[in-house]
């Protein structure tokens, strides 16, 4: 099941240089929410932008019937979101997609977020904590100002390490470099990640070297968000078991919106 209709904005505040945190009261959607799933938002009531915008669930409050969204203003749609005020109605569909699954038997998780990719990791970190799984969270950002959510994560009592491209905070360099330093000492037995493709690509090859399996959350341009239009596909290695000869060419296209956005890291093929 999935909800489609209006929620009510209860809060929308600036939390970073280009970042906003919005809380929406929408109980019918909230009760189906799960870490890693997303909502598909109609930002304009007019024709531009025409398509909805996918935004991950960043916070889920089942008791209050609210979800929160952490988003970065990068274009017209997200700018329109930033202009909304408490009391406004917001048109959303969801929750959509498959979220993170926490495999049985894991004890120590490595959680890696790059840029705005940190957004869907919050509810995951909370779930991991709930299950008593130890975790190290690595956040990568352009510069100190772009590090979002460190305090909130630390207040949950998890270890957070930061990498910035310019070295203005924490490790200087990409978060994959930081991960390479951290993995031998932290000895995680599983990882979860969300971020830009080059980061995910680097992380997948790095973790493979350490024999570490995990899950990654992908992004693609979306149309419908419900698996109908085949716009949002990504290359996937599975094929064993499916009868689609598509896999004969070494990959098959899977839909980020309904087969994902979270995939097994070993399955995904990220092109350059």
């Amino acid at each position: 099941m999935s909800f489609s209709g209006l929620g009510e904005v209860v809060m929308n505040t600036k939390v970073g240089p280009e970042h906003f945190l919005m809380r929406v009261y929408v109980p019918q959607l909230t009760k189906l929410a799960k870490p890693g799933r997303f909502v598909h938002i109609r930002c304009s009531s007019g024709m531009d932008p025409l398509l909805r915008r996918p935004i991950s669930l960043h916070g889920i409050d089942y008791g209050k019937g609210t979800i929160s969204l952490l988003y970065q203003v990068v274009g017209t749609g997200t700018r329109m979101l930033a202009e909304m005020s408490p009391g406004d109605g917001i048109d959303l569909m969801g929750p959509l997609g498959n979220g993170f699954t926490i495999p049985d038997g894991i004890n120590k998780a490595l959680v890696v977020g790059g840029g705005i990719g940190v957004a869907p990791l919050f509810p995951l970190v909370q779930s991991l904590k709930h299950y008593g799984i130890e975790q190290t969270v690595l956040l990568g950002a352009r510069s100190a100002a772009f590090v979002i959510g460190r305090e909130q994560l630390e207040s949950l009592g998890v270890k957070v390490k930061i990498a910035t491209d310019d070295g203005s905070f924490g490790y200087q360099g990409f978060v994959t470099g930081l991960a390479e330093d951290v993995i031998p000492a932290a000895k995680p037995d599983y990882f979860f990640a969300c971020g830009p493709y080059p980061m995910l690509k680097g992380l997948i090859s790095l973790t493979k070297g350490f024999g570490l399996s995990g899950q990654v959350s992908l992004e693609e341009y979306m149309g419908c968000g419900v698996g109908a239009c085949l716009a949002c596909v990504c290359k996937n290695r599975t094929g064993g078991g499916t009868e689609q000869p598509a896999s004969a060419g070494g990959f098959e296209y899977k839909k980020v919106c309904t087969d994902g956005p979270v995939f097994e890291a070993s399955e995904v093929i990220l092109d350059d």
Partner: peptide, 20 residues
């Protein structure tokens, strides 16, 4: 026969329209 389809991006927005 099954078709794999085209490489991504497969969709782009234009004013009041989409290209697929």
């Amino acid at each position: 026969e099954p078709r794999k389809g085209n490489p991504t991006p497969r969709i782009a927005e234009t004013p009041a329209g989409i290209l697929n």
